[in-house]
């Protein structure tokens, strides 16, 4: 099968060349704008003498452990709820479809602090479901569970949106053929649809996870800032920044998150490249 790009031969025309020359300056400026602060952060962290000591301080370790735990949990929950949702949205048009789509997209554009307030109003002690929740002796606010819920609220939509587009790009012919080959609907989904949507599953999951990892506003309002219970890395950075340690405390924590995010991004690229599907035939 011919690559699609071969359909239009690449011609290096004059217009293309002149456009390149025109656009190169803003592009360099943009790259520098992103690179300079990140390099500065790394350089400053290297100057801090007792960096290893601080990396292993209980304050940092607790925040790191909590961040990993909660963001991973919220990713798992997002997968559990988001994969079926994305599939339904991709394959069906039902009454209220636009409303559901709006619901899925809203948390992505909503300021996280607003999400936090909304969660508190719904599930807080004096919230709509607060009384009912405390009747079954379940208190959410200011617990680790609240951190997970806050992260889920703001991050799951990234998974759903990405995966929905992925499912939509899977030709239903494959699913039909699978069914005529005797495969149950669930097997068709598991061994045809999901593998074919794998790139979007990976990128969606990474986006979701990193968004959960960086969650601050909603967590602060709904879960609070309690060391060992709700103080995730972003909250720890704020806390350190406002404490006597000031900037130097925040720097160490920031460098850790920077490293984690970089590693994740690289892993995602590798996974996507290895899992890249050839042109559909």
């Amino acid at each position: 099968m011919a690559q699609r790009s071969e359909a239009i031969p690449a011609v290096r025309g004059r217009s293309e060349l002149s456009l390149n020359r025109l656009f190169v300056a803003p592009a360099i400026l943009f790259a520098a704008f992103v690179a300079v602060p990140l390099l500065a952060l790394a350089a400053r962290a290297a100057q801090e003498g007792d960096i290893f000591e601080r990396l292993t301080s209980p304050f940092v370790l607790h925040a790191l452990r909590l961040s990993m735990l909660t963001s991973t949990l919220s990713l798992l929950l997002a997968l559990l709820l988001g994969v079926p949702t994305a599939y339904l949205l991709a394959r069906n048009r039902f009454p209220g479809y636009r409303f559901v789509t709006l619901l899925v997209e809203l948390p992505m554009v909503l300021p996280p602090t607003v999400a936090g307030v909304a969660l508190l109003v719904a599930f807080g002690r004096r919230g709509i479901f607060g009384g009912w929740l405390s009747d079954i002796s379940l208190e959410l606010p200011f617990t680790t569970a609240a951190v997970v819920l806050a992260q889920l609220f703001v991050s799951a939509p990234f998974l759903v949106r990405s995966l929905q587009a992925g499912f939509e790009s899977v030709d239903v012919t494959y699913e039909r053929v699978s069914a005529t080959l005797g495969a149950s609907s669930l097997r068709t989904f598991w061994s045809v649809t999901l593998p074919l949507a794998r790139p979007t599953l990976i990128s969606g999951a990474v986006l979701c996870w990193t968004r959960a990892l960086s969650e601050l506003g909603a967590t602060l309002i709904f879960a609070g800032n309690f060391e060992m219970r709700t103080q995730t890395m972003p909250l720890a950075i704020i806390t350190a920044f406002e404490s006597s340690a000031g900037l130097s405390g925040a720097i160490v924590l920031s460098v850790i998150l920077l490293a984690v995010a970089s590693v994740l991004l690289v892993l995602m690229r590798v996974a996507l490249k290895r899992g890249a599907l050839p042109e559909a035939v």
């Binding site: 030709d171 005529t180 609907s185 045809v192 593998p195 074919l196």
Partner: peptide, 27 residues
């Protein structure tokens, strides 16, 4: 369809692109 026990071949061919020829045949 999965209970009708028929072989169905379409114009688009629609081999599963993520499976080898043998895995397609044995699907």
């Amino acid at each position: 369809p999965q209970q009708r026990n028929v072989g169905y071949l379409v114009q688009q061919i629609a081999l599963f692109p993520h499976l080898t020829a043998a895995e397609n045949i044995g699907y």
